[in-house]
Amino acid sequence: MTEIKGDAEKIPSIWQISGESPPRPLLEISSIRKDYRQPDGSNMTALRLGPLTAYPGEAISVTGPSGSGKTTLLRMLAAITKPTFGEIRFAGQDIARLGNAEAAWRAVSVGYIFQDINLLPDFSVLENLMLASEISHVPVKAAESRASSLLTRLGLDGRKDSRPAKLSIGERQRAAVARAVIHRPPMILADEPTASLDAENARVVIRMLTELCAERRALLIVATHDDAVRRALPRTVKIGSEAAL
């Protein structure tokens, strides 16, 4: 069983310091819990999380030991799974109640990066980006322009026609970043995006992610157990045995 203690409300935000009125929160999590049924019929609590509010443009790291529920949290935020108890509101909407619109909501609202498999192996880098754009209903012209710009910025210009298997791990993760942001979602979820990378590549990927999210004022939530990543992001949510803000 894992839990989170405390949340962002305990830290004075930039809005409180500047005296300006803060923007409306993008993400509001009440106390939530996720249980899974075990083969023997008993329930196993995978995650227990206290209230959490996050704003557009914030970059948050979620840390905790393996099995602490980081992936479960991200999957709930992406509306892949629903909390057993509690509520997750995105822009004021309870995402557990999206019903059939869940996939369409995710296509528009979420950019997701996995630790490893982030690109369809049968498609080139550019095709992966165009497919993601198509699923998110980005017009083709706009998608082509964004893809070209992103690939140049991420140093993948010469690799756009390569299949994922032909890329280095670092290139793959940079392509994953491009794929996750091409449709300009308001929330980017990254599940251990640097776990397979060396320090230099990890630094590049996190820098690109934070820059791109900041530019579009997207909320970035990164599940990680990498201290360097945690330090690179301004806000940390710890779950599991090390739970503390």
């Binding site: 996939a103 528009v108 996995f114 699923i135």
Partner: peptide, 14 residues
């Protein structure tokens, strides 16, 4: 399975 998971997370319905 991984490819399906990826497509689903991209917003492809079941």
């Amino acid at each position: 399975r991984d490819e399906r998971e990826l497509l689903h997370i991209l917003g492809v319905p079941h």
